[in-house]
Computed example of a mutant assay.
Amino acid sequence: MIEHPRIPLAGVIGSPIAHSRSPRLHMHWLRRYGIPGHYVPMDVAQNHLREVLSALPKAGFVGVNVTIPHKETVLSLADVVTDRAALIGAANTLIFRKDGRIHADNTDGYGFIASLRQNAADWNPTRGPAAVIGAGGAARAVIASLIEVGTPEIRLVNRTRARAEALRQEFGAKVIVHDWVQAGNMLEGATTVVNASSLGMEGKPEFRIPLDALSKTAVVTDLVYTPLRTRLLEEASEIGCMTVDGLGMLIHQAAPAFERWFGSRPEVDQATRDVVMGP
């Protein structure tokens, strides 16, 4: 009997998941590099997560991405957790190893930094303070990565101050928490500004933080990519700032996972962006 090699499978687990652009992205790369694999979206309830993760490797899965609401839960289900996933307190990438163990990693911070370096050529994280809006999972990844690349001070604001204070306790003295009503003031002198909240996203409240104190030499990025050009980015552009949209982070965070699963490091280029944002 002729033995046929198994087709490698990967996917994304979350709930809901139908909106995810990850299948479009990974299938584009699979076709580009001629790899006989598939990437599928899976809507998995919290109470089924353990059972599903244990079954997937038996069906030929080499790994999965993990999104809301499972990014924290999977840390307790993994056999190996990278230092950066442990520091951030969440995983977005799982690798199913041949020895049967589940390896959990977080590539969000890597994707954030890689996107800035690709799309804001002169960006220097050590040049001055960063201002971060939001204190959820995305903000955790942003703060961890900014500290890693040498940002001297991270000014943090969140509508619920207690959540921001909790991050200061975890990440240390470089993080300085500001009151929500003073959010506009913390932009003064900031060389990097990051919206890591859902403000400005389609279906969410508008981004209304005043940008009067924003310097035109700042690099401004919004992790929101629906819409691609948010109100924050439009207003920052009018001031003269270099701006970076959220699509780059989405694509860059996927690249190391694709390489681990399928063995090829994919290129992040305009054609990839067009595919992900296409109809």
Rank of each mutant, 00 (worst) to 15 (best):
G203Y: 10
R159Y: 06
T230R: 08
P41M: 03
R32A: 08
E3D: 15
I13W: 00
M277V: 07
P227K: 07
D274E: 14
S215F: 03
D269V: 04
R6Q: 14
E72T: 08
S264R: 15
L75R: 06
R168G: 15
G263L: 05
N185H: 15
V275P: 01
H4Y: 14
D179Q: 13
G248T: 05
L247E: 03
P129D: 06
A218W: 06
A78N: 06
N119V: 02
V52S: 02
S76K: 15
E3C: 11
L9Y: 02
G184T: 08
G184R: 07
I13G: 00
L167A: 02
V224C: 07
L156A: 04
K204R: 15
G240L: 11
D222A: 07
F262C: 03
K174H: 11
L49I: 12
I88N: 01
V157R: 01
G137H: 03
G172V: 06
A86W: 07
I176A: 13
N195A: 08
D43F: 03
K98P: 11
G200D: 07
P36R: 13
P129R: 07
F171H: 05
L146W: 07
R127I: 12
L53P: 01
T67P: 00
L211V: 09
L75I: 04
D108H: 03
H19I: 01
R140T: 10
I68M: 13
I13F: 00
E51H: 13
R161L: 12
Q270L: 12
G248L: 08
T192W: 04
Q46W: 06
A141P: 09
H48N: 15
L214H: 02
A144T: 11
S145C: 10
H28K: 04
K98W: 11
V74I: 10
P125N: 09
L232N: 10
S198E: 10
F207Y: 09
G111E: 01
P41E: 02
Q46A: 15
S15T: 10
I35H: 01
Q118I: 03
F258I: 00
V220Y: 03
F262R: 01
A144F: 08
G137A: 11
V244P: 01
R140G: 08
P205E: 09
T191V: 13
F207L: 12
T82G: 04
V74L: 04
V275L: 03
I2F: 13
E238T: 15
G111S: 08
A257C: 10
A10S: 13
I95K: 11
M186K: 05
A166E: 15
L232T: 08
G128V: 10
S215V: 02
N119W: 12
L247K: 02
L77C: 05
H19V: 01
A18L: 01
N47F: 12
A173P: 15
S197G: 05
G89R: 02
A104G: 07
L53Y: 03
R208Q: 14
R159Q: 09
L250E: 00
G14Y: 00
